[in-house]
Design a protein around this nucleic acid. Structure first.
Length: 758
DNA sequence: TTAGGATTCG
């Protein structure tokens, strides 16, 4: 008898040769002949027939374990389907033996086991059903609780009913002023009567998981009462809900936190009918948009991923999000202390041109704080506001606000990873070519204008808690001290901004000019005069290749490829040592190889060139070492860095080579004036102030233009002192000994040009 | 208890 209904518990009643299999060990291709699976029936679908006339029946079994995927679909075919379909109840314990295991086509959607079980007489299956004690098993017909659903035009105050409806409006769950989460949901059905329900629960998961207008909900045991001459639904004891995607034709997979729930064929029909009705009767004008489609002055719903978050103040909180597309307008950047920003800094930097900053206010702050970086969100009724800079009203940028309150469903909802919109978003994000957006050089000049227009407001400091001090007070005060000041930038030096870039040695505090290309070219030519020594070619840690040059006499170029354990070595990860090449050839090589170390050969070994030349070239960045502080070691030491995946950090390379690296810095003199007095303050900065790395300015005309624009805004040429913009910055005073004399100097510190230059 | 739909201070 392939189907047996047994009263009681499974133990000791099964044939002794059968062994129990756990879902976590279940996989395709294993012999299941002597295995059985036991689980509780949590869902059964209506008995139906396949196209070929075979009877078909599907249930979901839940394993009584705490493993993550604890449910599995079980498909019955033929006579077994008919037999089981007639006697199975929700809550029954079922044992299936002699099944086939196949890949579940719906695993992605239903989150159940990646395989399903196929049960049929042909496969030699046997099914044992241990009826739930509370159900009288003598009965031949299934006993499932029968729910009746009240149409929305038949509601009476003071009753508790079951309802179906299409969501016409909703507020995603928010933290109420009481003890619970609250969600307000307005539903409508074919009677065209709508009902607004106010739902409370201390557990966020117990509230309906509505993601968009048009979703279908089923409410069980909702209390109906009258409020303001209208019917109102409210949560009562035993309230439960299921939510379904409202799209016609989409899989009917209930979203619920209930472990078990009833679901019948009739109800499936109800949902399909409601979907069809809603499609033509519910105005679903979704205000969703991608960032690429945002318009200023708009409210819309944004589906995005959270990449960073930071507290701004008690009533506002910053969310950094992206959706894979680029906002067509310059957007604001909210300045926060870097230490306050939670999220992967490297990722935030990589995505910087795709990320938008959203400020959420008041009641949304608490929820925003609890969000996990990396999660997918839908932010409802997000407001884009157009703003423009004070002195350039024709150039505007966009601010993103989630205002306080819950009007129009304003709020934030975390979307699960299996949500179809999230899946689509992830796939899109994976396809985005990030390099296209990483480079500031990919920005149009209009965008740059827009971004820099923000700068006109002021220079911002990291220390907002200090009060401003007048310059004459500073001039008459003891040294050293730190101040916040408000002043105008009367003049600055050097006027040619590229001249502000210097090389600095943090060990001996020396500053030097950046050597020019011609000097380097001369050194290279000098080296190329001596042919590479073949005896030092190919060693344990590098492979060598030599090329002859055409029409250039005897000059040979040797390239030594440093080996590492990676099987496939990409040029962009490779360090090469080059000998005999000209500057032009080195530039060409540096477009392809991650790191280049110019070398020459002695009788015994390869060695570095004179430190007037860069010791390392990484793309456009040339790294120099301090002649005074370096204590050069043999080039053999490089082999210690050639691991499996060497990162080729310039600092590490410098260290093993005994080189004290020089840093690129901006050195400028600002003459500041606040009406009470004037003083010269030095700016000494690597990249923080302008948000431009000093190391890249000399080789990028765009970055030079960018700097020029910033300075033009801080100190517009030909402007009278009165008309100059006010700047806020931090300065500190200190003493410098000049021979026998003490001199007081001022330096700008911890100051950043607002607001987005990144 | 909370909220009871109905945009924008930032």
């Amino acid at each position: 008898m392939p189907v047996q209904v047994i009263d009681g518990t499974p133990e000791n009643l099964l044939p002794s040769h059968l062994q129990k299999v756990d879902l976590k060990y279940l996989q395709m291709g294993c012999d299941q002949a002597n295995k059985y699976f036991q689980g509780t029936v949590i869902l059964s679908y209506p008995l139906t027939k396949l196209v070929n006339g075979t009877e078909f029946f599907k249930i979901v079994l839940q394993e009584n374990s705490c493993s993550k995927t604890s449910t599995i679909n079980v498909l019955f075919f033929g006579r077994l389907a008919g037999d089981c379909g007639k006697v199975v109840h929700q809550g029954d314990t079922m044992v299936v033996a002699g099944f086939n295991v196949a890949k579940s086509p719906s695993a992605n959607e239903d989150n159940r086991h990646c395989c399903h079980l196929e049960v049929s007489e042909d496969a030699g299956s046997a099914v044992y059903i241990y009826a739930k004690p509370s159900i009288v098993t003598a009965s031949e017909t299934p006993v499932a609780p029968k729910y009746t659903y009240t149409p929305l035009n038949h509601l009476k105050g003071g009753t508790i009913v079951n309802l179906y409806g299409a969501v016409k409006f909703f507020k995603p769950p928010y933290i109420s002023k009481g003890t619970d989460y609250c969600s307000v949901v307005t539903i409508v059905d074919q009677s065209n009567v709508k009902l607004t329900c106010t739902l409370f629960n201390g557990n966020l998961d117990a509230l309906p998981k509505i993601y968009k207008i048009g979703d279908i909900v089923r409410f069980h045991r909702i209390k109906i009462r009258e409020y303001n001459n209208q019917m109102q639904g409210i949560t009562g004891i035993g309230f439960a809900s299921l939510t379904f995607d409202g799209t016609v034709g989409a899989p009917i997979v209930p979203r619920t936190s209930s472990k078990s729930y009833s679901f019948t064929e009739e109800e499936q029909k109800t949902i399909e009918e409601l979907r069809t009705w809603a499609a033509s009767n519910l105005l679903v004008c979704e205000p969703t948009a991608k960032l690429s489609g945002v318009q200023p002055m708009l409210f819309f719903d944004l589906t995005c991923q959270l990449v960073g978050k930071a507290e701004v103040d008690g009533s506002s909180f910053l969310l950094k999000v992206w959706d894979g597309t680029k906002c067509p307008y310059p957007s604001w950047k909210v300045l926060v202390e870097e230490s306050d920003l939670e999220g992967d800094k490297v990722l935030i930097c990589r995505l910087r041109n795709l990320i938008v900053d959203i400020l959420v206010y008041d009641n949304h702050v608490k929820l925003a704080k609890s969000l996990k970086v990396g999660s997918f969100l839908r932010i409802y009724s997000l407001h884009t506001k157009q703003a423009s800079a004070e002195n350039q009203p024709n150039v505007s940028y966009v601010e993103f606000h989630l205002h306080g309150g819950t009007c129009y469903g304003r709020g934030i909802r975390v979307l699960p990873e299996n949500n179809p919109d999230v899946k689509e978003l992830k796939a899109f994000m994976d396809s985005v070519n990030l390099t296209e957006f990483q480079n500031v050089e990919s920005m149009s000049s209009m965008e740059l204008d827009g971004i820099f227009s923000n700068l006109s407001r002021k220079i911002l400091t990291d220390h907002q808690h200090l009060d401003d001090t007048a310059l004459n007070t500073i001039l008459n005060s003891s040294v050293p001290q730190q101040y916040r000041i408000r002043a105008k930038l009367r003049t600055f030096k050097p006027e040619k901004l590229y001249q502000s870039v210097k090389l600095y040695c943090s060990k001996c505090n020396s500053l030097q000019e950046v050597p020019n290309d011609d000097d380097f070219d001369l050194i290279l030519r000098d080296c190329a005069a001596t042919a590479p020594n073949p005896e030092v070619h190919n060693s344990l840690w590098y492979d060598s290749a030599v090329w002859d040059t055409e029409n250039q006499g005897q000059r040979k170029i040797a390239v030594h490829f440093v080996k590492h354990d990676e099987l496939l070595q990409e040029p962009e990860d490779t360090l090469i040592m080059v000998q005999g090449a000209t500057l032009k050839e080195i530039r060409k090589l540096s477009r392809r190889f991650k790191c280049i170390i110019p070398v020459r050969s002695t009788k015994e070994d390869l060695e570095l060139l004179d430190l007037s030349a860069p010791f390392l070239l990484q793309g456009k960045i040339w790294h120099y070492g301090c002649k005074q502080c370096s204590n050069q070691k043999t080039i053999q030491n490089l082999s210690s860095l050639a691991e499996e995946e060497p990162s080729w950090e310039p600092t590490e390379i410098a260290q093993v080579l005994g080189i004290e690296p020089l840093q690129y810095v901006f050195v400028m003199k600002f003459t500041l004036d606040d009406g009470t007095g004037a003083l010269d303050a030095y700016l000494f900065d690597y990249e923080k102030f302008f948000q431009i790395p000093a190391s890249e300015v000399l080789t990028s005309s765009l970055l030079q233009e960018k700097m020029e624009m910033i300075m033009n805004i801080l100190c517009p040429p030909g402007t009278k002192l009165d008309d100059l913009p006010w700047l806020e910055c931090f300065i500190k005073s200190y003493n410098v000994k000049d021979g026998m004399e003490q001199q007081v100097c001022y330096q700008i510190y911890d100051t950043v040009v607002a607001e987005d230059v990144i």
